[in-house]
Design a protein around this nucleic acid. Structure first.
Lengths: 248, 248
DNA sequence: CCGAAACAAGAGCACTGCTCTCTACGGAGA
DNA sequence: TCTCCGTAGAGAGCAGTGCTCTTGTTTCGG
């Protein structure tokens, strides 16, 4: 998008530039509504154009392709989910580490229930080409960043004693290379592994519920689903941010 | 499919009936190949028909719709995955409970890596209408059934002492209603919850890797991915099939 | 002020799922 | 054995999709 640079340069935007940002916003917004209603697979560029009263070819002036539009929606979804999780976690006292983890998990689940198609878009099978564009990885880290904060605070508060942390096998330590760059050094590898496992459990639970894997497994009533989920989150937290018992 | 009944009745199949089962098999088979190559979203009935040298409308004599064809492929995928997991688990000595769980987990992951689109079809965001047809739920239980066997053997072998099992909250116990029907009574609710969590962790790990959520988190090298995964599975098993320490 | 760039509109291409009509043929009853 | 009847295949066609190209029109900057 070479236009954006010239747009950024001009302090006062001309008629054309204003119309461009406005229309781009309108396109993404109606696309988001269509996505929420019909799901990623049924998102139609032509339908979006129709609702905006323009012809389909005109949309291509603003969005390079359908996949790029989906990428924009992916970014929006990651951001919305991240905001919801941050808001929920911020309400819990800093010292209540389990409460913070559970709050994040419940926020993710609640957001997924309220935005099933958006959730499927970001955590389901990727619809566009497999390679996730560079723009999506930053917003995708928002929720994990909260969990990293909890891990770091567990060490800081002494709930997890790094001195008692067991060494992880060398191959496992090497596998953690990329994520180590985003985690404070005080968090030992053992706790990093636990954190990734906790995050996987959380997403696994939400995805399985969202994608229907809990049919004929858990009761359908919302209150019981909620009870099970909260229990699972509490147990997950209990095996994550705790000083490990020395094992023979 | 009212024809099937008459087909079952006749001991010797006529030319028409033979051709029907043959062609149906051919359609599903080529569809499976197309699915493996291009993914569920790009599966085209017309392309399948083209490859079989028939016109698209003829396929509708055998498959009611594209979604029904996908449902058939879903059933096949569940069965193939279940077979792979069963085979891997059968090789482990019955007494090695952790080994059996890890074997199942590794088998699921290996199968997912070898059949990414099939995996996405069954454990990713559902492509057809949300309601999973009745025919799919039976094959879907194949892998979980193996894990249930491990849980039951943990109780039988005394590795998990049901006498020491803590009571789960009443709402959680009620949420387990459906799945209890498929689990021996000797397995206490506490262990059922652990089992569902372990299964969620396993699927969460595989899905996150498969859907690209581990980019910039774990190293890309296959050996390191494998090492991390095995470690995670071992840890998951270790917190599942063990007599719980009494907590204050 | 004028040329270049951006824009909207429309036609068109190749493709999809699915329906309908028409013709040919296999199989079972009279 | 012959005669229907239901099934099979072929083709045309409909409505929809993503995307491209051409043709005018409007806006902006030198």
């Amino acid at each position: 998008m070479p236009q954006e640079k010239s747009v950024e340069d001009r302090p006062v935007l001309g008629v054309r530039a204003r119309a461009r940002v406005e229309l781009t916003r309108a396109i993404v917004e109606t696309a988001r509504r269509h996505l929420a209603q019909d799901g990623p697979a049924n998102l139609s560029l032509r339908a979006v154009a129709r609702e905006l009263g323009m012809v389909s070819s005109a949309v291509y002036r603003y969005v390079p392709s359908r996949d790029d539009l989906l990428t924009l929606l992916i970014i929006e979804a990651y951001d919305a989910l991240g905001a919801a999780a941050e808001k929920a976690e911020a309400k819990v006292p800093r010292t209540d580490l389990d409460g913070r983890f559970v709050a994040v998990g419940r926020a993710v689940r609640t957001w997924a229930i309220e935005h099933p198609h958006e959730y499927a878009l970001i955590y389901g099978s990727p619809v566009p080409g497999y390679a996730a564009p560079q723009d999506t990885i930053a917003p995708a880290t928002r929720v994990p960043a909260i969990l990293i904060g909890v891990l770091a605070d567990a060490v800081a508060a002494g709930v997890y004693d790094p001195a008692a942390a067991p060494e992880v096998p060398a191959a496992v330590r090497r596998s953690l290379g990329p994520v180590r760059a985003a985690i404070p050094d005080v968090v030992p590898d053992d706790l990093v592994v636990r954190g990734i496992m906790a995050w996987s459990t959380l997403l696994g639970l939400v995805s399985m519920e969202q994608f229907g894997q809990f049919h004929n497994v858990l009761a359908e009533a919302a209150s019981q689903r909620e009870a099970f989920f909260t229990e699972a989150l509490r147990r997950t937290s209990a095996v994550t941010t705790r000083t490990p018992a020395p094992r023979p």
